[in-house]
Design a protein around this nucleic acid. Structure first.
Lengths: 132, 132
DNA sequence: TTCTTAATTAGAATCATTCTAACTAAGTTT
DNA sequence: AAACTTAGTTAGAATGATTCTAATTAAGAA
């Protein structure tokens, strides 16, 4: 997905994040890559930005909900721009992560709200599968 | 939940896991605690069993599907005996993990199967909430 | 009982992530 | 538009959960 710098600025502003060159680059990277990268992968692609800033920025983006963390079984966090609600299908054979949105989560969120009495702020759904 | 040694043996046998005193103790611990403990918590309760064995056994149990890993935001794996299908509600204020089962996941699994063409082998659902 | 193979263990090693402390730059205020 | 305040960036060190190693022990088959 392609996005203009102006749109990137608007997104950051919306979440009260200061606009810095690093944040513009990292956010753009996340939006334009469907690869669910780790911090290390992002760093190795964006060599001019320090690893500490990659982590700091990802933390901020996750706080806002713009980005979500996916944990598969490789002991690294994977990051995913969460522009549209979706869930993840993880191919255990290849560790590939597929984004899917053909499911209405509202009934689940309602059930969770009812079961806990909490105000629901987000969710993660990961479904595991193997080559059939 | 209380369980006899004979039942523990039957469970291990069912999954082709060798029966050892350590495995009986760890599996019993997981079944009888609703606390979603980390490896370190289990180790500190079961002082006679080495940390390496705690990790090795948890790995085996997760492989079989008897136990699932829950990742909240504290950089430690939490482990949960998965006797009955359920999902997790995580109170972000307290980091408390609640087990809930008031939701039928079959439609989700069907959707995932349809979207990916994979044979579905499991799922994790975590819903986040705050005190309302 | 013997044998083979897997499980257990203590301790070392790994490595993703966080922390520290100095420097830099956003964005606000005047 | 200069000065100010506060937050962001950075390199490198520190942390700590987890994995690895290599020696010992024990499960379960023959």
């Amino acid at each position: 997905m392609k996005i203009s710098e102006q749109e990137l600025r608007t997104i950051l502003k919306k979440y009260n994040l200061k606009i810095t060159p690093q944040r513009l680059i990292i956010l753009n990277y996340l939006i334009s890559h469907k690869t669910h990268p780790t911090a290390e992968m992002i760093h190795s692609d964006l060599k001019t930005i320090s690893l500490a800033t990659i982590y700091n920025t990802l933390e901020k983006l996750v706080e806002t909900g713009l980005v979500v963390v996916i944990d598969i079984n490789d002991d690294k966090h994977h990051f995913d721009y969460y522009g549209n609600p979706h869930y993840h299908i993880i191919n255990k054979t290849t560790n590939e992560i597929i984004d899917a949105d053909n499911f209405n989560v509202q009934p689940l969120l309602d059930a969770a709200s009812k079961a806990s009495g909490l105000k629901i702020s987000g969710y993660h759904i990961e479904v595991y599968g193997n080559k059939s």
